[in-house]
Design a protein around this nucleic acid. Sequence first.
DNA 1: GGAGTCAATGCGAATC
DNA 2: GATTCGCATTGACTCC
Length: 271
Amino acid sequence: MGLDDLYNTSLVLGLGFSSSSTVETTKSNNKVKINSKSELPSLTLSLSGEIYDSTVKKVEFSDNNIKGQYLDNLYRQDSGASSFVSNVSSVKREREMGSEEVVLSSRNLINSTTDEDDDGLINGRKKLRLTKVQSALLEESFKIHSTLNPKQKQELARELKLRPRQVEVWFQNRRARTKLKQTEVDCEFLKKCCESLTDENRRLQKELQELKALKLAQPLYMQLPAATLTMCPSCERIGGGGGAENAAKSNFTMAPKPHFYNPFTNPSAAC
DNA sequence: GGAGTCAATGCGAATC
DNA sequence: GATTCGCATTGACTCC
């Protein structure tokens, strides 16, 4: 099959919705919203060359070179920055978007004839670089909704002159990058939390050690259950049957030094 | 030339 | 069963 056959005689049957309407569905997590107002499915029949640019109605070629250039322009912007080269080997992918099939298959046939063609294609795969305009539009669209429904995908692909699959892949990779970035941010946050908790733990351990040492150094009266010690309401001293003396003798000093008393054993000790 | 970026691929899981 | 997604991976390309 030659280019004449590919380009002039390939008809594309497409099923879609009218461009003036929008679809609305709700997806659980990603908040995809598409308005479903006056949705009218439509069937279109066109030449394969019209797929990526609806403004192109009819193109006639004087020779195969011009035809080839036109084919290239369908897949490339900014001097080759956005070239489509993908071996559509996957059966899964060949199912996608029937209207593109003719063109993709045709291009693939062209590429598959040699390992390297005029564009420097090697094994049918060349790095696609999106143009700034394409990237900007994709980013804008991503800000609005991080996932696309088929209608949005088609629309965006048509605007950007890309395959729907390429738009889909871009969004998948973009989501992956976003997730990776968020993971890195979360990781940093958790690191700081960990450091903070480690410091806090260290401080509390130290405090615990000090309290244990304090307890060992405390006289017996201080080790009484709290319920048995009552602060003297008048002088704010705690009674404790000689505890004060022991406390005074103790090497441990507390400031201000309280007055202990025990109302159960020596109620008169209160001031 | 090695590292990083990013479009593209393949596959399994989930959903309908 | 078809479709879409996430994920791991590949490979082309750029930058230093």
